[in-house]
Design a protein around this nucleic acid. Structure first.
Lengths: 193, 193
DNA sequence: CGAAAATTTGACATGACTCAACTGGAGTGG
DNA sequence: CCACTCCAGTTGAGTCATGTCAAATTTTCG
């Protein structure tokens, strides 16, 4: 197994020296995931931090009426995990599902704790990573408050041009908090301008 | 200046030993804030991590139409900061304003970095703190997607019983993403049941 | 190729907003 | 202790953004 992509990823933060890379290597496992396969379902306890090597995932909750609401996508070089369930070790209310055939690296909780304890750099790196995710989430919340559906869609296209081509509109609609039908009408509007 | 409340706060995470407490003490300053006073305004660069000792703050963005949208409250023993601006050192789009007369501790960026470098425990603690905030933010986003305004209000009352008594309904409405008028109608409904 | 999923379209329904007017404290100053 | 202002909260009528449901059409992928 070659964890080079993960090493490269960490080079964006505090790069790992060789010893740290070796440490990491022993704590990571690889997993292939088929399209529409779940790596987390409601009721599960989230056991892993998941790093996407290839493919694309969505994380979503399901409301009383059975509707899915996407709160995050993750493609190459991104993390996707229900941090709440991972830390509390309580059953999750979320689903993580592959939108495309995928390959991921997984780190178990004991292994992550091992890394934290044996190398503070991981504390640092994961602190920074989650800070970035926090900022993004906060922006998302603010956009949902203050933007119209139309503007949220255009903001999404602008921010994730590549992702928005890979994803079915249904999934984008769910992420924007609207119905696929309404997104279709928005797209129609934009085109006819 | 007595930083005991902050020490006590950290005891919920990895407690600080005496040396670490002394280190912290030299890096923290106290500040009194009047009602309606801002500690951050659009265009500022967010210079501090703020820890609330007394009083209550709101953080909000303003949309094109001039409407305020609260994304966070912070009362005693909570942090409030625009992490995005703090890290990027770019002008913020957010406001942080005291809803009540308040006292806060502030940590400057250089001082926080100093703490991180000299004591990995701070990396750890702030990682955990922000993880908790991330989880809360994610729940908030999910509720905004999948709950009706009525249910969001009741969830807010249940989750923050004390805060909801301190806050004017106007502010709660803004946090829930609805108008004060509509919140009033919801409250009317609830009472008349 | 064939089934399942995604997209589009249209008629109609509704949750939440807007705006304006009214009510009722909470301070403030005289 | 009154008169006055000033907010926060309430109410109602009309409107708008977005949702619902159903049907037709196209695309995807197994």
């Amino acid at each position: 197994m070659d964890i080079a992509p993960l090493i490269t990823y960490f080079n964006n933060y505090l790069p790992l020296d060789e010893a740290e890379q070796d440490l990491l290597k022993t704590r990571v496992t690889e997993k292939k995931v088929k399209r529409r396969q779940f790596i987390l379902q409601e009721g599960d306890i989230c056991k892993h931090y998941n790093f996407v090597l290839q493919g694309c995932f969505k994380m979503y909750g399901v409301d009383e009426k059975g509707k899915e609401h996407n709160i995050q996508f993750a493609a190459e070089n991104d993390w996707i995990t229900d941090i709440g369930s991972f830390h509390s070790e309580k059953p999750t209310k979320l689903y993580i599902e592959a939108i495309e055939p995928a390959v991921i690296f997984q780190i178990k909780k004991v292994d992550l704790l091992f890394l934290y304890v044996n190398c503070p750099k991981f504390d640092r790196n994961f602190r920074i990573i989650i800070e970035e995710k926090f900022i993004e989430l906060q922006n998302q919340l603010l956009r949902n408050f203050s933007f119209t559906a139309h503007d949220r869609y255009e903001a999404f296209l602008a921010q994730y041009p590549k992702l928005s081509q890979r994803l079915p509109n249904t999934q984008i609609a769910s992420y924007l908090g609207i119905t696929p039908e309404f997104l279709s009408k928005i797209r129609n509007q934009i085109v006819s301008k």
